[in-house]
Amino acid sequence: MGAYVAGGGEFNRDTNYITTRITADGADGYPVEPDRYRLIVARACPWANRTIIVRRLLGLEDALSIGFCGPTHDQRSWTFDLDPGGVDPVLKIPRLQDAYFARFPDYPKGITVPAIVDVPTGQVVTNDFAQITLDFSTEWTAYHREGAPQLYPEALRDEIDEVAQRIYTEVNNGVYRCGFAGSQDSYEKAYDRLFTALDWLSERLADQRYLVGDSITEADVRLFTTLARFDPVYHGHFKCNRSKLAEMPVLWAYARDLFQTPGFGDTTDFVQIKQHYYIVHSDINPTGVVPKGPDLSNWLSPHGREALGGRPFGDGTPPGPTRESERVPAGHGAA
């Protein structure tokens, strides 16, 4: 993700992404086709984690391959340091920037994940993380698995969009606004905004199991990836320390409910999450020391949210087991 701090010490996210879309009708020149594209992610990144979750819930593994960057990157680019020889086995490149430069030789902005690459040309198609998951739900329907859930049902889209927008500005981005604040005043304002939103979410979720409707939607995916990183990273590293997630009873139960749902906890890599933030953000953590804690075993404790009713996958079914080649490494989860 690309970001910068502007005058007054306030954090501003660079939101000028590559907005080309992969659609059923191919209006932008990139039609949905199986085996043509490769989704490039890093498990550490909350924005990329969303695409991993949605791809798995919808069962797009056969249609869209996935490549994993390592948890850290240098000033310029995410790299494929987890792969043999440090090269992506499909794209045959060592750095994600190679795919960006293949399409935009003078690409001036940050090299971000998630990104979708057109395998035949080796060119990046899009890094517009918010649109990517919506398109998985609406444009890739021909390749959804049988029993795929409706994560963006038409009847609820306006409400999902409204809730997701507030989650993005106040929570997903809000933690960064705290962590990268350049002055005491801007930090304190960011802190107040963040916890105002978390309190609003606690109220909303006190008597309903999911954010919109009675099953999991895109809005839940967008909130989950921030909550999963809250205690391991944001509470300490970003100074979001009014309370831990584990001290906010409704949100903590909600987060565990999702974590224990196939597609969520089994795509969450706490080791890479901590390595990314504490090593890459050398301006915030110059020693590069990565904390040992917190203890994660409580993610698997009973959450009691079933009492609120709801059907996690609506009329659909849970996804099957994670493919062996895509599993979070042993010891990196909450088991």
Rank of each mutant, 00 (worst) to 15 (best):
G110M: 10
D98K: 08
P31G: 02
I93G: 08
I53K: 00
T23A: 05
Q131C: 10
G86Q: 09
I40R: 02
Y17C: 04
L96E: 09
N16T: 15
P120G: 09
A99C: 07
V41K: 06
R103K: 14
T23L: 05
P89R: 07
V117L: 04
F101Y: 13
P94Y: 08
V113C: 12
Q97Y: 03
P34V: 08
R36N: 00
A44F: 08
Y17N: 05
D14V: 12
T23D: 01
G29E: 11
P114I: 14
R43E: 05
F80E: 07
I66T: 14
Q123H: 12
R50H: 07
R76P: 00
G86C: 08
G26H: 05
R56F: 11
V87I: 15
T19V: 13
T15G: 13
A27K: 15
L57S: 05
K92P: 01
Y107G: 12
V87K: 11
I111L: 02
A130F: 12
T112I: 11
L58G: 10
T51K: 02
K109W: 10
I116A: 03
N12Q: 14
R95G: 06
F68M: 07
D118Q: 04
R55D: 03
K109D: 15
R21N: 01
T23W: 00
A130G: 11
Y30P: 01
R38N: 02
Y107P: 11
R55V: 01
W78T: 09
D74W: 04
S65M: 03
N12R: 15
I18A: 10
R13E: 12
P114S: 14
I93N: 06
P34R: 14
E10K: 13
I111Y: 10
V32C: 08
R56V: 01
N16A: 15
A115P: 10
E61T: 00
D35M: 00
P46L: 00
N12I: 15
E33L: 08
T20C: 07
A102T: 04
L96C: 10
L64E: 06
R21W: 01
I40F: 05
D74F: 02
R76C: 01
I66K: 00
A48E: 04
V125N: 04
P120D: 06
G9Q: 01
R95I: 02
T126A: 06
T79C: 09
I53R: 00
N127G: 10
R76G: 09
F80M: 07
P46V: 00
N49D: 03
Q75D: 15
A27Q: 14
G70L: 09
V87Y: 11
R50N: 06
F129M: 12
L60T: 04
V32S: 07
L60D: 03
